[in-house]
């Protein structure tokens, strides 16, 4: 059987998904994803030319509401669950090199 997904592709997808894997895990995912994708390819048996996509089952158009100020959470509350914070803001590691 032709491999449906390569190790390099899995590494690329992991990077897009912000996940890090060991070499062993990459090997497992390459097999698992290959199997699942092979299974999913049964959809190609169906002719779907001219069929509209269903993104949503309800026929909802834009839902509007008046633009009114309502009660909201405070800055203090918003930071309650933050793992690292300083001076009323969330703190993260360096985002720029150097």
């Amino acid at each position: 059987m032709v491999a449906r997904i390569t190790k390099e592709q899995v590494e690329h997808v992991a990077d897009l998904a912000r996940l890090a894997f060991t070499d062993e895990e990459i090997a497992v995912f390459t097999k698992d994803l290959g199997d699942i994708i092979a299974f999913a390819e049964q959809l190609n048996e169906l002719d779907t030319d001219g069929i509209e996509e269903t993104t949503h089952v309800l026929n909802i158009a834009n839902v509007m509401r008046p633009d009114e100020v309502r009660e909201s959470i405070s800055r203090e509350e918003a930071l309650l669950n933050a793992p690292d914070k300083r001076d009323g803001q969330v703190r993260v590691p360096n985002i720029l090199e150097g």
Binding site: L19, F29, I51, E52, E53, T54
Partner: peptide, 26 residues
């Protein structure tokens, strides 16, 4: 997350995600 990221990634979106949305209609 890996399967979903793959199905939505450039070059595979039409073949997997969009196809599945069409089959959902059926």
């Amino acid at each position: 997350i890996m399967l979903g990221t793959f199905a939505l990634s450039s070059g595979y979106y039409d073949a997997y995600y969009k196809k599945a949305q069409k089959v959902r209609t059926l």
